[in-house]
Write a protein that binds this DNA or RNA. Structure first.
Lengths: 189, 189
DNA sequence: ATCGCTTTTTGCCATATGACAAATGTTTTT
DNA sequence: AAAAACATTTGTCATATGGCAAAAAGCGAT
C-alpha cells in the first residue's frame, strides 16, 4: 500500500485521516498472466494500481488481428477510462501480460471517495491528465518514425517493460510484424 | 461567444451569473494564417477556443523536419497543456493553418475562474480529458494501418479539416511523404 | 495575360517492411 | 526424457513507401 500512498502524494497533499480513508477502500488482488482486468463488451468497474507486473490494453481490429495499444507497468493507475467514466461498454481488453499484483477500488468506493475527500478530485484529475498526456507522448514516435527508431524510442519510453513482454505484443504495439521486429533486434545487437 | 457557452454547457451546468463571469474574462482575437498561438521555447500563457479556422500543433524533429502532430478546428479548446499547466517551456508550436477567430483567456483569468466558480474545475477536467482521449483515439490509426487506411480514417476523424489544409501538413501528420499522399489521393478518386 | 513563387503531381529507382513458410529455439505437459 | 505446443528467427519474394528530381498546376502581384 505504501507505493500507492507515495504515488498519490506526488500529485497533492492529504492528511493522515484522508489517506487512511482511501486505504480502507483499497483491496489487494492478484491477476494471473493472460487474465483480464477489464474486457471488451463490458463496463469497466474498477480502478487499479499496479504494485507488481505489466498489463496491456489490446483490441481486435476489423481484420481480426489482435493489436496491443498500450502497456502499463508498476506504480501506475490502470483503468479503462472511457468505459469507467461514461458507463459504456468498452471496446478494448485490459489484460495481465505477467502475473500481476494490484490494488483495486470498486467504482462505488471510488466515487464515494471523490465525494468525501476534499481535494481528492483535483488529485485524481492531475493523475489522469498526466497519464493521458504521457500516453500521447509515448505513442507519438509510432507515427512518422521508421520501425527501428520506434523500437529504440520504445525502450526509452518503457525502460522497465522491454524484456518482460512477448515479441508478438510489442510488434503489434509498434505497428510492425513479428518478423520485422525480430530482424530489427538482430540488427541492433 | 454563444458557441463557447454552448460548448461549456455540454460538460456541466452553470448558472447565468457564473456564465457571465466567465464571459467577462473572454477576449476575442484574430490570428492570421501561419501566425503562432503559442511557440516552442516559450511558456503557453493562454487558453483559446476556436470560433473559426483551423490550427495545428507542430514541432521539428531531430532531422529538422517539420512534423504536424495534431489539428484543432472550430468549437474546440486549444492550449498547449503540458506547458500551460506546468509552467514549462513548450517543445511545440501551435500555429494557425487558416485565418482564425478565437476567444482567449489569460492564464491569470483562467486560474481566477477556477478558484471562483464552484464546479468549473470539474467541467474543465471533463473537457480536457475528453480532448485527450479523442487525441489518442484519433492518432491510433496512424499506427499499424497502411497509409491509405490512415488517410481514409483521417477523413472520418476530421471531416471538417480535410479540404482546408495544405497537403504537406497532412502528409507529415499521417507520417508519409507528400508524394505518397498525392499518389494515395489519386488512387482513391 | 504574364511572370514568379509555391504547391501538388508524376516518374524512376532504391529500400524497408509485409506475407508466407520453414527452421530453430523455448516452455509446458505428460 | 520425449512429445507437444508455442515463440522467435530466418529465408524468399512481393510491394508499399521513400528519396530525389522534374513537370505541371495553382495563385498572387503586376
Amino acid at each position: 500500500m505504501k507505493e500507492l500512498v507515495n504515488y498519490i502524494l506526488q500529485f497533492g497533499n492529504l492528511n493522515q485521516h484522508q489517506i487512511d480513508l482511501i486505504l480502507t477502500k483499497a483491496k489487494e488482488k492478484e491477476i494471473k498472466k493472460e487474465d483480464y482486468f477489464s474486457e471488451a463488451g463490458k463496463i469497466a468497474s474498477e480502478v487499479g494500481f499496479i504494485i507488481d507486473g505489466i498489463m496491456r490494453v489490446c483490441y481486435y481490429n476489423n481484420k481480426g488481428e489482435e493489436i496491443t495499444k498500450y502497456f502499463i507497468d508498476e506504480n501506475n493507475l490502470v483503468v479503462d477510462l472511457e468505459s469507467f467514466d461514461n458507463n459504456i461498454c468498452s471496446s478494448a481488453y485490459v489484460q495481465a501480460v505477467t502475473d500481476c499484483k494490484i490494488i483495486v477500488f470498486s467504482k462505488k468506493d471510488w466515487q464515494e471517495l471523490l465525494n468525501t475527500i476534499i481535494g481528492w478530485d483535483t488529485i485524481v484529475h492531475k493523475i489522469i491528465s498526466k497519464a493521458l498526456m504521457q500516453k500521447v507522448a509515448r505513442r507519438s514516435p509510432l507515427v512518422s518514425e521508421d520501425a527501428t527508431t520506434r523500437y529504440l524510442s520504445f525502450m526509452e519510453m518503457f525502460p522497465n517493460v522491454i524484456n518482460r513482454i512477448p515479441l508478438s505484443y510489442l510488434a503489434s504495439y509498434l505497428g510492425i510484424t513479428q518478423s520485422s521486429l525480430s530482424r530489427i533486434r538482430k540488427n541492433i545487437r
